[in-house]
C-alpha cells in the first residue's frame, strides 16, 4: 500500500557554524492509510521538527518529503498551503483555535480558505463536529468551551473535507486523563476509517493507541516497534 506520508532521508539543520543544530539527521519515515504512528523521544530529539516538515510548514535541508505521492519541494508556498487545506490536518497541544470565530467557523476554515461556498463549508463542518460528538456546540466561541471540547473542535478541523493525513503534536498535553483518552479514541477511530495519523507524544500510555512507535534521539530514529515490512526499509526511493 502506498504511504500517505513519506520522509526520505530527511535532514534539517538550524543555524550555521558554531550555532549549528542538527534537528533531524537523515530520517526516513512512512505513514500508511489506516495507521496511527506515535513519535516519541526526549525534548530536543526532533519530534516537532518532524511534524513541521511533514506538514510543509518548514522545508528540509536535505532529503525529500512526499505527501500522497507529491514531492513538497516541487510546490511553492501557495501550493504547500493548498496541500495543508486539502490533505493534511494539524492538531496542536494548545488547540490553536481562532478566538474570533465560532466552533463551526473554525472547523470550516480550511474549506473556506479553499474557496468553498460558506454554506457548503458549514455543512462539512457540522458533519465533522458530528463525528467528534459536539455538533450542539457549533455556534459557541472557543472561550465558551472546555479544553476537551476545544480539542474536539481542533480534531474536527483536522479531519474536515476527508483529509487523509492527521499530524498531532501532543494533542492531549493540555487535557486531563479522561478527556485525553477520549481524544485519542477519536484519533484512533479516524485512522481506522482510513486516514494516516502521526502523533507526537511523550507518554508511553498514549503510544499504546498507536500501531507503531518511532523513537527519536538527537535527530536520529533509534528504534521502531511494530510491524514494518523490511523491504520498505530497504527501498527508500519508492513513494
Amino acid at each position: 500500500m502506498n504511504a500517505v506520508l513519506h520522509l526520505a532521508s530527511v535532514s534539517r539543520v538550524h543555524g550555521e557554524g558554531a550555532t549549528e543544530v542538527h534537528a533531524l539527521r537523515s530520517v526516513t519515515f512512512r505513514a500508511h492509510p489506516g495507521e496511527l504512528v506515535a513519535v516519541m523521544g526526549p525534548s530536543g530529539s526532533g519530534k516537532s521538527t518532524l511534524l513541521t516538515l511533514a506538514g510543509g510548514l518548514d522545508a528540509p535541508t536535505s532529503g525529500s518529503v512526499w505527501i500522497e505521492g507529491t514531492d513538497l519541494a516541487t510546490l511553492d508556498n501557495a501550493g504547500r498551503a493548498r496541500m495543508r487545506r486539502t490533505s493534511v490536518g494539524y492538531v496542536f497541544q494548545d488547540f490553536n483555535l481562532i478566538p474570533a470565530l465560532t466552533a463551526a467557523e473554525n472547523v470550516a476554515l480550511p474549506r473556506e480558505l479553499d474557496g468553498e461556498k460558506g454554506r457548503i463549508a458549514r455543512r462539512l463542518a457540522l458533519t465533522a463536529l458530528e463525528e467528534v460528538g459536539i455538533v450542539d456546540l457549533a455556534d459557541r466561541f472557543p472561550d465558551e468551551m472546555s479544553g476537551g471540547q476545544q480539542q474536539r473542535v481542533a480534531i474536527a478541523r483536522a479531519i474536515v473535507g476527508e483529509r487523509r493525513l492527521i499530524l498531532a503534536d501532543e494533542p492531549t498535553g493540555a487535557l486531563d486523563t479522561d478527556t485525553g483518552e477520549e481524544i485519542l479514541r477519536l484519533l484512533r477511530a479516524r485512522c481506522d476509517a482510513g486516514a494516516a495519523g502521526v502523533m507526537v507524544t511523550h507518554e508511553a500510555r498514549h503510544a499504546a493507541w498507536a500501531d507503531r512507535v518511532v523513537f527519536l534521539r538527537d535527530g536520529v530514529v533509534v528504534d521502531e516497534t511494530g510491524a514494518d515490512e523490511p523491504e520498505i526499509l530497504l527501498a527508500g526511493d519508492r513513494a
Binding site: N77, A78, R82, R85, Y90, L97, I98, P110, D114
Partner: peptide, 10 residues
C-alpha cells in the same frame, strides 16, 4: 499562525 497551519495561503 493557526491560519497558516490549516492551509491559508500567504
Amino acid at each position: 499562525a493557526t491560519l497558516s497551519a490549516v492551509g491559508a495561503a500567504p
